[in-house]
Design a binder for these strands. Structure first.
Length: 902
RNA sequence: GGGCGAAUAGCUCAGCGGUUCAGAGCGCCUGCCUUACACGCAGGAUGUCGGGGGUUCGAAUCCCUCUUCGCCCACCA
């Protein structure tokens, strides 16, 4: 019967919850991880699974090592994302948020969040996440909101928050401003349109290259590089914007690259950050007309940037007459991309389009809805980031925290050292409302409370309508979750945390900013280690995403293969920081290894448990003299495994730790020890192997528990002597016992394995049925002591399926030979079925292989530089090897001769 | 334009600062339902470690360079 995780996993999880083992023990040194809070509306995808499995492995490892393990869970209100989800639902009913109004809309969102917000948390439980659910947080919790507000007010009072009038990224779909980080770069194949701007004086035209012709109604001038001799004559002249006829000046500016396009640049200050800077240098008094509305259509709606601050001057003369006539009527209301097409057609028709070139460039898109972002002049709240970043970098330089893998250092440093101010206002309704108040008399301040009247003049006050960027609340996660700004016991105990586990995609969004807020408000780092894991991708290396439809539903995987299998794949297939590649087309290949391993463990458990009496002696109570070579070998391997696995976990090499434990359980314990020990399991001699088996199974389960917690717990429960309330989840992590380390046993049992493998190999080579028992003889030489094999004679007989094994006798009749060690031989009697020709070929192939190796070894050893410069122990080892091989070769050669091979 | 990463068996990848490192899983071939396990057991085959150069006694492993992919950053009109 194969192991079925389906009934086991939920039951085990329930037991953990009931026992309260996920809450940190009251004593002991804390180990703290704060979860990257998933969006409340999220449903679990593989990315979450990977992220949370890694955290769970680390937290379970440290919990077993006796730390007070605190894994703080929670969710993020995710302003834009959540608002979008609810708006989409409203849209299905033909309604918009404007129909509801702000208050009712926010109620609607709360309603939705309260109903569906726990979905992902329940899913995290399904995959085994051992979060401290008693400390669950949400970024819109009352306490948490207080922290957000406190931070805002403090920054405001320090003058680190300011109103900026500048070109920001605007999403025409989400209808909000975005930060630089939220506008993702996408390399795009576009066009460079060469457009003719007629000179005002009718003396011809100049050509300007642009990728965004639809912005031209917002042009306030053209510039060329002062060094550009081609255009000297244009200085001071004016041109007409095609299709609108608005007259704009020509000037010079250093930033214009002569080699790009025509060397003439159209300046659209309200829709291009670079042009904004140019305009302020060249035409400081100029108006900056907005010609694309908030929704992405052409027209002049004023909007957030409508009050430009500067008045129109003579530099811009509106030929069409009248205010607001910059965009010709036929384009007003057209979507920007339609407008682009139409404009190009018209330009072509009026012979004002000189040419169109293909042009690859980076287009920014909204990280939430993928809409092409519109640069737009606007008034927004910004945080001055430089001082915050500098504090972090001072701590970073002192090594107060570090990033693994290290290769992210450069990226992190580069971003921090070139930090730009953070646009924190969003034109949304869902989120923390910006606590800035303005009275009728123009007094403005940030407030912890909601004032009704102005403290200075008692006038009526109004609160800023916008909300804060979601990340302005999540950047406080490591301390706001523990009660800050109050000085709580939790905060004192759990700050700073230890390991922050996340993907590199939110290094800037979240990690860097948490560091800044941590240093700023807590006076020190929020965590010691930032562990950046890979990203879940499909086999074509594409990020898994809903839109591509290449995702894998972790719950389907759990249903088909079990949570342990899912976890196994996440852990074993991702080397430190490497991406996790999964094939959505072939779940079997992707997840079967974990399921198979769980099944193997289950069966090892079935066997071992079946052998154990209720009172198994502890391993330390076993008389050392009763240990056989096989016992000593597996016990020694166990110690090596403990050391290797512990070290690997400590270094975040989860894949290595998992694989090492896998090898111990499967390849060493099951494949060799269990098979070797079977004959000893009956009778009075059974006590020792029982103790060894119990010890090895217990050890394997402990070591594997962080990775496959369910099956390990299930089996561990069944070990004899378990008290009813004992749980593996809080059992002690094994420590290597030096007294059980036995390098000699490693070596000697290694020889036993070699002999068995040789015999098996010979059997296969000569196609001897497994049913046929064979007779074999071992002739030892050199260090290959006959006593070694004598002690394990039964093992060899059993595992090589022999009839009898002679030691140091004279091999009878004809047989197949294998040489090993210091020229020792194993001879398998094969009267009748042996083919001398075949045997000759086998042996001479072997001899050939040996000769080749020997030659290269000899070359190395006769190389004086090698002997002189290589480390002594390397040379000594090579010498030993050479001697053994030489002996083997001599024996082989002798055999060939005696067989009469040519 | 700058930075980073990847190129190793048919596939997905290990190989953690050099001398049994040429590996694992899956797939493939040959035998096996050997009373824990066919989600298994045993035995096999497959790679000029992307190309070129260099350092060294010795290089998938370090340095340089080229090619191909991917990612991040940038005021690529």
């Amino acid at each position: 019967m194969a192991y079925d995780p389906r009934p086991v996993e939920p039951a085990i999880y329930k037991r953990w919850l009931e026992a309260g083992v996920f809450q940190p023990r009251p004593d002991g040194e804390p180990y703290v991880i704060v979860i990257p809070p998933p969006n409340v509306t999220d449903v679990l995808h593989v990315g979450h699974a990977l992220n949370n499995v890694i955290q769970d492995v680390l937290i379970r490892f440290e919990r077993m090592r006796g730390r007070a393990a605190e894994w703080l869970p929670g969710t993020d209100h995710a302003g834009i994302a959540t608002q979008n989800v609810v708006e989409k639902r409203l849209a299905k009913e033909g309604r918009s948020r404007f129909d509801l109004g702000r208050e009712r809309f926010v109620e609607e969102v709360w309603c939705f969040v309260n109903k569906t917000g726990n979905t992902i948390l329940e899913q995290l439980k399904v995959i085994g996440s051992s979060c401290d659910w008693s400390r669950l947080r949400f970024t819109l919790d009352e306490d948490y909101s207080r922290a957000v507000r406190e931070v805002f007010v403090r920054l405001w009072d320090e003058g680190l928050i300011y109103r900026g009038h500048r070109v920001i990224h605007w999403c025409p779909h989400c209808l909000t401003a975005l930060s630089d980080e939220e506008a993702e770069h996408h390399e795009t194949q576009g066009n460079l349109y060469h457009i003719k701007y007629p000179l005002e004086d009718g003396s011809g035209f100049v050509t300007v290259a642009t990728t965004r012709p639809e912005t031209m109604f917002g042009d306030i001038g053209l510039v060329f590089n002062p060094k550009d001799s081609r255009y000297k004559a244009l200085q001071g002249k004016r041109v007409k914007i095609p299709l609108s006829g608005v007259v704009i000046p020509i000037a010079t500016d250093e930033v214009v690259e002569q080699g790009f396009g025509t060397g003439l640049l159209k300046v659209t200050p309200a829709h291009d950050a670079n042009d904004f800077d140019i305009a302020r240098r060249v035409w400081p008094a100029s108006e900056m007309p907005l010609v694309i509305r908030e929704d992405g259509t052409l027209g002049e709606d004023g909007g957030h940037g409508g009050h430009g601050g500067q008045k129109a001057t003579a530099a811009v003369k509106n030929k069409g007459g009248g205010q607001g006539g910059r965009v010709p009527a036929e384009y007003v209301g057209l979507d920007r991309f339609e407008a682009r097409k139409k404009i190009i057609e018209r330009l072509k028709a009026t012979d004002l389009l000189e040419k169109v070139e293909q042009h690859k460039h980076s287009v920014r898109r909204c990280y939430r809805c993928d809409t092409v972002v519109e640069p737009r002049l606007s008034d927004q709240w910004f945080v001055t980031m430089k001082p915050l970043a500098e504090t972090v970098m001072a701590g970073y330089a002192k090594g107060e925290f570090h990033i693994v893998p290290e290769r992210w250092n450069a990226t992190f440093e580069n971003w921090m050292n070139n930090i730009r101010d953070w646009n924190i206002s969003r034109q949304l309704w869902w989120g923390h409302r910006i606590p800035v108040f303005t009275c009728a008399n123009g007094h403005q301040w940030a407030d912890r409370a909601d004032p009704q009247t102005c403290p200075k003049c008692a006038a009526h006050v109004e609160q800023d309508p916008d909300v804060l960027d979601t990340w302005f609340s999540s950047w406080l996660w490591p301390f706001a979750t523990f009660g800050w700004p109050d000085d709580t016991p939790d905060l004192r105990r759990f700050y700073p945390g230890h390991t922050l586990v996340t993907g590199p995609d939110i290094l800037f969004f979240w990690v860097a900013r948490m560091l800044m807020s941590g240093y700023k408000f807590m006076g020190q780092k929020p965590f010691r280690t930032v562990y950046l894991h890979g990203i879940a991708r499909d086999t074509k290396h594409r990020k898994m995403s809903k839109s591509l439809g290449n995702g894998i539903d972790p719950l389907v995987v759990v249903e088909k293969f079990g949570a342990d299998a899912l976890r196994w794949t996440c852990v074993a297939n991702t080397a430190l920081g490497a991406d996790l590649l999964l094939d959505p087309e072939d779940l079997e290949t992707t997840f079967a290894p974990g399921r198979n391993f769980a099944n193997k463990l289950w069966n090892i458990g079935q066997f071992v448990l079946g052998q154990l009496p209720t009172n198994v002696p502890a391993i330390e109570a076993v008389d050392r003299r009763s240990l056989t070579l096989a016992d000593r070998w597996i016990l020694s391997r166990a110690q090596a495994t403990v050391r290797a696995a512990t070290a690997a976990f400590e270094q975040f090499r989860l894949d290595e730790a998992a694989k090492r434990c896998f090898e111990f359980a499967w390849n060493e314990l099951a494949d060799w020890y269990v098979e070797a020990v079977k004959p000893r399991m009956t009778g009075s001699e059974a006590q020792t192997p029982q103790a060894v088996l119990a010890y090895c199974l217990d050890l394997s389960l402990r070591l594997l528990h962080p990775v496959v917690p369910f099956i390990s717990e299930e089996l561990w429960q069944k070990l004899p002597g378990r008290k009813a309330d004992e749980l593996l989840a809080v059992a002690r992590w094994p420590v290597a016992r030096p007294e059980l380390e036995d390098p000699r046993a490693d070596q000697e049992f290694g020889r036993v394995k070699t002999v068995i493998e040789h015999i098996r190999s010979i059997r296969a080579e000569y196609r001897v049925s497994p049913k046929t028992r064979l007779r074999a003889t071992i002739v030892t030489r050199g260090n290959d002591k006959v006593t070694t094999f004598d002690g394990e004679r039964d093992t060899i007989v059993r595992l090589a399926q022999l009839d009898s094994l002679a030691l140091d006798g004279v091999p009878q009749g004809v047989g197949a030979h294998a040489v090993f060690g210091d020229g020792s031989e194993v001879v398998v009697a094969l009267e009748g079925s042996i083919d001398v020709q075949q045997e000759c070929r086998r042996l001479s192939d072997e001899l050939g292989r040996l000769d080749t190796q020997l030659r290269s070894l000899a070359a190395r050893l006769t190389n004086e530089s090698f002997v002189a410069r290589a480390p002594q122990e390397v040379v000594a080892k090579e010498r030993e090897k050479e001697k053994a091989w030489r002996d083997q070769r001599d024996v082989l050669a002798g055999k060939l001769k005696s067989l009469g091979c040519s």
